[in-house]
């Protein structure tokens, strides 16, 4: 990896330059919150954002997308076109860059998903560093930093940005659109100081020791019953999660029934019928079994395949949950939880 320095007041040049070639999407203010939206100009960009309501995944797998058009007569596919305009996602925090890499394992690995893949390949990622908010726990997973999965990454050193350049395209964009200079030893020192202050600003990391093992050993723990009682099965945690990738597929007929479209929509394992099969059996009928499954899959199921947990500690689910269920508390409860046998023995 190599590095450049960009003065802060030159950043609008980069945004304007990119806008000539790409659809530029970045964090913009919406009420008291932030969302990713197409920028109308550099002035919209709010790199001081804490988090966005929805994670960047919506730009790679939209909440609802057509995956094919069909004709019902003779069950024919009309087309499988994917809408993947050249796009830059400008301003992605390390947690979310990591989140996209976790999505990549699923959608770009074995039997790649052509829709996700086309958008991923047509989208540049400009990362930006951040400050922890009171719901962040990325330091538990090491997702408070990222070394892959972006084209360039901007670290705010006050008057200027320390820019990590990961891809050829990223290097070209900087060359073409913005005045930059080489880094000095002094810049690297300043970068290290900013990093040290960032790391020190987190509270103690969560105790995640032996989590996959504990999920099995305490699978029957009453902790899950209590969480099941509280959970509203609304699925908000999955919708705002940068790593929840589950989807459902539905057919929508045209009014004349001669054709229609097959659409994919975001789904959630919190929904009651998520694991139900046709003749009525439902493998996760109870709310507690569904809450448990979400944690089980994130901290163990995904890990068993890809050697990483399926959580980046962004804190969105903590903010979204109306029942106040959040990963740090669930994990802490599990660490301290008694098994069903222990409860019975008391």
């Amino acid at each position: 990896m190599f590095f450049r320095m960009i003065d802060k007041d030159r950043l609008p040049d980069l945004v304007r330059g990119l806008a000539a070639e790409f659809e530029v999407v970045g964090p913009v203010a919406k009420g008291d919150s932030f969302v990713y939206a197409e920028l109308e100009g550099p002035g919209d960009l709010r790199l001081d954002f804490d988090s966005t309501l929805l994670p960047p995944k919506e730009w790679f797998m939209p909440p609802r997308e057509r995956i094919m058009r069909f004709a019902t007569a003779d069950n024919e596919v009309v087309d499988c076109e994917v809408d993947a305009p050249p796009r830059v996602l400008f301003g992605v925090h390390p947690c979310d860059v990591n989140g996209l890499q976790l999505m990549d394992n699923v959608f770009l690995g074995d039997r790649p998903d052509p829709y996700y893949k086309a958008r991923r390949e047509n989208t540049l990622i400009v990362g930006v560093n951040c400050q922890p908010s009171d719901t962040c726990f990325c330091n538990a997973w090491g997702t408070d930093e990222t070394h892959w999965g972006f084209d360039i990454f901007l670290s705010d050193l006050g008057p200027d940005y320390f820019v990590s350049v990961r891809s050829v395209k990223g290097a070209e964009l900087i060359d073409r659109h913005v005045e930059s200079r080489e880094i000095t030893h002094q810049d690297t020192r300043r970068f290290q100081e900013v990093t040290a202050r960032f790391k020190a600003s987190f509270p103690e990391p969560l105790d995640t020791s032996q989590l996959p093992l504990l999920l099995d050993a305490k699978f029957d723990s009453p902790v899950w019953d209590e969480l099941g009682e509280r959970c509203l099965s609304c699925g908000a945690c999955s919708m705002v999660c940068p790593t929840c990738y589950c989807f459902d597929v539905k057919d929508v007929l045209d009014p004349d029934h001669a054709g229609g479209e097959r659409v994919r929509v975001w789904d959630s394992c919190m929904f009651r019928d998520f694991a139900a099969v046709a003749h009525g059996a439902n493998f996760r009928e109870s709310r507690s079994s569904r809450v448990k499954y979400r944690y089980y899959h994130k901290q163990w199921g995904y890990l068993s395949k890809f050697e990483r947990v399926l959580c980046v500690g962004c804190g969105r689910c903590t903010r979204a949950c109306l029942a106040g269920i959040n990963p740090p508390e669930v994990i802490a409860a599990l660490q301290g939880a008694m098994s069903r046998e222990e409860v019975a023995a008391e």
């Binding site: 074995d110 990738y245 989807f247 459902d248 099969v277 899959h297 890990l303």
Partner: peptide
């Protein structure tokens, strides 16, 4: 096992059984 295999390629998540997917 019978599960709700929807995509068949280990992506949609519906057929999760324990830490595995029934479809793959």
């Amino acid at each position: 096992f019978e599960r709700r295999m929807k995509c068949g390629v280990g992506k949609c998540g519906h057929c999760g059984v324990g830490h595995q997917y029934a479809c793959v």
